[in-house]
């Protein structure tokens, strides 16, 4: 029987209260939301927090997807099912719907949250790549106020983020610029599994050139891989399949996968390249409203 080690449990009744508890309890406290990453880790004793602070009652404060003019704001407690079904998100960043359709399974998606996924910081986790591609920023709140952190600084190491003891991830912000298109491509062994490799791409097209681009890869590095060199290659050029092929080549070179039960290194590098190319093609077709 798998049972977590003993811990004390408390239910937060406000974001402020949750942060106060986190600050008081220090490094032995963890936040629980959906629990679908944390509880399996606790059962395996890979995580052994002494205190759990349950934030599920904070939906009024932390569960939302809204257009704030210039950016989309997503509350950290927003569940995968709500990300999947959001028309607002599908309209501006269809990459979220692509990813959510292949994250775990519908039952898990009823509980798991975007904040939990990002804070788990599993290198194979899809939303971290999505957020990297769309240039998301994380709002982290502590007792002394809040700070806004870009995704590159959010992921510190495998399973480690910029969220410190006594702090809570409260919101994800997605900047809105014209001409956007985005897509997520994933290869998995079976429905609901972690990615063998996955690529998220966002492009912003202006007068037939790629004005800006973001690409993130899952499961092919120690953390989410931000493909900065491939982005440099694409910026300012007219989109074409040849160009995306080159970007895919760069993706294969710039990722650092490890061999495991999901496949050897050369296969994962190959996948990273192919999926990057496909994600760029689909993102661009969406930006140009040419998707088949």
């Amino acid at each position: 029987m798998q049972t977590p080690a003993s811990f004390d449990y408390e239910r937060a009744t406000s974001v402020e209260g949750a942060i106060a508890s986190l600050a008081r309890l220090g490094p032995e406290a963890r936040v629980i939301a959906g629990g679908h990453s944390l509880l399996p880790m606790m059962k395996l004793r890979l995580a052994q927090p002494e205190h759990l602070i349950d934030i599920n009652d904070l939906e009024a404060e932390l569960s939302y997807i809204r257009d704030e003019g210039g950016e989309i704001a997503i509350g950290a407690l927003t569940r995968h099912v709500d990300l999947l079904k959001s028309e607002l998100l599908a309209q501006h960043f269809p990459v979220f719907r692509d990813a959510e359709e292949v994250i775990a399974d519908p039952v898990v998606r009823n509980r798991g949250t975007i904040g939990g996924s990002l804070c788990q910081a599993d290198p194979a986790e899809d939303l971290s790549a999505v957020c990297t591609a769309v240039k998301a920023k994380a709002v982290i709140r502590g007792t002394d106020g809040q700070r806004v952190v870009p995704m590159d600084e959010f992921h510190v190491a495998p399973y480690m983020t910029a969220v410190n003891d006594g702090e809570l991830l409260t919101e994800i912000r997605l900047p809105l610029f014209p001409g956007a298109g985005s897509a997520h491509e994933k290869v998995e062994r079976r429905a609901g599994d972690w990615a063998i490799a996955a690529a998220s791409a966002a492009v912003w097209v202006d007068r037939s050139t790629i004005h800006d681009v973001g690409i993130g890869l899952s499961a092919v590095g120690l953390t989410t891989v931000h493909l900065k060199r491939a982005e440099e290659l694409l910026r300012g050029k007219p989109p074409s399949e040849e160009l995306f092929q080159q970007a895919g080549q760069v993706a294969s070179e710039d990722c650092s996968p490890m061999a495991d039960g999901r496949g050897p290194v050369d296969y994962k590098r190959h996948l990273a390249g192919v999926l990057t190319k496909r994600a760029l093609s689909r993102a661009t077709a969406r930006a140009l409203k040419q998707e088949a």
Partner: peptide
């Protein structure tokens, strides 16, 4: 009303 996996939910929640 929504399906959840009861092996990955704490009773206290």
């Amino acid at each position: 009303g929504k399906p959840v996996k009861s092996c990955t939910t704490l009773a206290v929640m």
